[in-house]
Design a protein around this nucleic acid. Structure first.
Ligand SMILES: NC(=O)c1ccc[n+]([C@@H]2O[C@H](COP(=O)([O-])OP(=O)(O)OC[C@H]3O[C@@H](n4cnc5c(N)ncnc54)[C@H](O)[C@@H]3O)[C@@H](O)[C@H]2O)c1
Ligand SMILES: NC(=O)c1ccc[n+]([C@@H]2O[C@H](COP(=O)([O-])OP(=O)(O)OC[C@H]3O[C@@H](n4cnc5c(N)ncnc54)[C@H](O)[C@@H]3O)[C@@H](O)[C@H]2O)c1
Lengths: 210, 210
DNA sequence: AATATTATGTGATATTATTCACTTAATTAA
DNA sequence: TTAATTAAGTGAATAATATCACATAATATT
């Protein structure tokens, strides 16, 4: 099997997202050209990306939207519910809790964790909030595989260590800190400020990108 | 001047972020090797990236943290206050409003825009909220250069058009929709679900990445 | 003061990603 | 039924990015 480029994997979820929109719009078939246009990509890129995983299209016709979406979802592992735990229920954590986009894509918030006594033991938007000390037990019980880190920057590494102690190997980090994790753990950081800086840079240099 | 790689620009804000942490930790000097380690990059990469903009280091000594931070901030255009307007003050918009990370990096939320009559005219966390129809006037008056789009997905393109009508050319998009913009406008989309899907993919394929 | 050491800066090289140019299969029209 | 057309699929070429290997300069050591 030829090694699949990282860049390709990153685009798969982009394709999924657009296919969901197309599906909502009632489109049954899409051409690589159209999909590419909607995402500002090259049509060849779309076809090449897909070709790493199989032949999903029909010549002279295009790709069946729901079929391709199902295939890509399968590839990305978002067919079965992926359970996530949110660590830190401040402004951001609570906004995430309300975010409808998770369930649409097969993610389920299974438990919340915080240090604030006012939150521990209570139910926030229908989800139970636990103390950090209970994390190991709850994570195992609920089968949580992904952690969302939304605690204050200063607590990032400490809470990260608790998460690692639970055996979780996939982390989505919202803090502004770079946290240290072992080799076999995958961490992705979300940082809009980076993007804002980019916007500032480009708006100054009159250059353009995407 | 040799063309600066896009990938390099993207890493500049990463360097800034880590330099701020180092600065807080009281470090005065940092080696390309250490900076690279902390960000899971190759030391040569760090040096090469910086070399596009000048010679900031001292051989046998390393880089002066605050000096390099100042230089990179200058390059990224985050020395002068960049004024941003937030469009959509729901769960996410309000969380962003509370986010301290913006001001740290020279971004200032100058105005808020929504369609909800309950919000229009009121003050949210010290910031004035306006109707969309007032956007053009306020954007001009306040000198807003960057828009944050945090309205429901269905309203994304409509509100985008209002933003474009205000003459704003830099947009940070939080909606799950791909919005269409002219050539000379730069839009960056934030999507954690993409990253979650990646995490799900990698945790399944036992592979690892960053 | 001379020599060894260390870390930056950078041209050359290797790797990775994207696009081109073409082949193939399916469909439509003649 | 045959020819023309269209769009997927893909090896090869090109472009972009990352790494290597080393020259250079600053500091430390003898
Ligand atoms: N608000 C935003 O829009 C936003 C945007 C980007 C990034 N962030 C980042 O997300 C993180 C959280 O931001 P926020 O605005 O939600 O902060 P916040 O202060 O509103 O909330 C932090 C929450 O974490 C809890 N907490 C503190 N220490 C903890 C610990 N050791 N273990 C578990 N929980 C703990 C607190 O009780 C609180 O509920 C920060 O790192 C921030 O930089 C926030
Ligand atoms: N909540 C999250 O953590 C989260 C995370 C990622 C992405 N998002 C995305 O961000 C967007 C907003 O999410 P949310 O949870 O804040 O939604 P929300 O429903 O809580 O808030 C939406 C806000 O936009 C306002 N609004 C509606 N139509 C408008 C219009 N035409 N012009 C201006 N304002 C308008 C509403 O009055 C409301 O204040 C959505 O696209 C969502 O998918 C949210």
């Amino acid at each position: 099997m030829p090694k699949i480029p990282d860049a390709t994997i990153k685009r798969l979820s982009l394709y999924c997202k657009e296919l969901r929109v197309l599906s909502n719009e009632g489109m049954e078939v899409v051409l690589s050209k159209d999909l590419a246009n909607r995402l500002d990509l090259n049509p060849t890129q779309v076809r090449k990306d897909l070709s790493y995983f199989g032949k999903f299209g029909r010549r002279k016709r295009g790709y069946d939207v729901s079929e391709l979406l199902a295939n890509l979802s399968e590839i990305l592992g978002i067919t079965t519910d992926n359970k996530i735990g949110i660590f830190g229920l401040g402004n951001l954590g609570r906004a995430l809790l309300n975010f409808k986009g998770f369930s649409v894509r097969g993610f389920y918030v299974a438990a919340l964790f915080d240090v604030d006594p006012a939150k521990i033991g209570s139910t926030l938007f229908g989800k139970q909030c636990y103390a950090l000390s209970d994390a190991q037990e709850i994570v195992k019980k609920e089968g949580i595989k992904i952690a969302v880190l939304a605690v204050p920057d200063g607590a990032a590494q400490d809470v990260m260590d608790v998460i690692l102690g639970c055996g979780i190997k996939s982390i989505l980090n919202f803090t502004q800190r770079h946290v240290v994790v072992p080799e076999d753990v995958m961490i992705r950081s979300v940082d809009f400020t980076d993007k804002l800086e980019l916007l500032a840079y480009f708006s100054r240099s009159k250059s353009n990108g995407r």
